[in-house]
């Protein structure tokens, strides 16, 4: 009972929030709805009993969208009044139609859902993180390691790009700013 109510609430809210993300021209609205939608998606994992994945979704995307905000802060004036003109009504039409279809499918899904079988059913007696670790380090070991390697490459690349002036301090001392010393100090 609670689960069904929560599921429909989350699905409507997530679809609505991501619609705002796509359509709004105000950077603050777009990013806030993106963050809220990402947090609400973790609710689906919790409803399905995949607590660990839900928490990972929460932790990862809270941090990721926070970094997006930092860029938004640098490039946009978040408080400027932006007129939300929907020049492309086709996009609005398609997206809202798509969401309507999606909602119908969501409501009809329990009818189809009985015939779905899990390819890798979770083993009995294992907790969430254990079963994920088991699948990750046996069945999907190669993709997992490749992803790790790619992240390492990306990290090294980021360091090389950003690290040219890393040995210099960001803070400037008085002498470097050429502030004349008062006579009393000498």
């Amino acid at each position: 009972m609670f689960e069904q109510i929560a599921f429909y609430l989350f699905s409507v809210l997530t679809a609505g929030l991501f619609l705002v993300t796509v359509l709004s021209r105000n950077v603050l609205y777009a990013m806030s709805s993106l963050a809220a939608g990402m947090v609400l998606i973790s609710g689906f994992f919790f409803l399905l009993g995949a607590d660990f994945l839900g928490v990972v979704q929460l932790v990862v995307y809270v941090g990721a969208v926070m970094a997006l905000y930092a860029f938004g802060m640098m490039f946009f004036d978040a408080t400027r009044d932006i007129k939300e003109n929907n020049t492309s009504s086709k996009v609005v039409f398609l997206l809202s139609g798509g969401i309507a279809v999606l909602l119908v499918v969501i409501f009809a899904a329990p009818i189809l859902g009985n015939s779905i079988e899990a390819t890798y059913p979770p083993q009995e007696g294992l907790t969430n993180p254990e079963s994920i670790g088991l699948v990750l380090f046996t069945k999907y070991l190669v993709p997992f390691e490749v992803a790790a390697l790619m992240l390492l490459v990306a990290m090294v690349g980021g360091m090389i790009l950003a690290g040219k002036k890393m040995d210099q301090s960001l803070t400037v001392t008085d002498e470097e700013m050429n502030i004349p010393q008062k006579d009393g100090d000498k």
Binding site: L28, S32, V39, F52, V56, V59, M66, Y69, T79
Partner: peptide, 22 residues
């Protein structure tokens, strides 16, 4: 997975100051 949940939620709490400031 309570530990991760609590820390993740407290991390999400920093959106308050962030949004307020912006």
């Amino acid at each position: 997975v309570a530990i991760l949940f609590v820390l993740g939620m407290m991390g999400a709490g920093l959106y308050g100051p962030l949004l307020a400031g912006m």
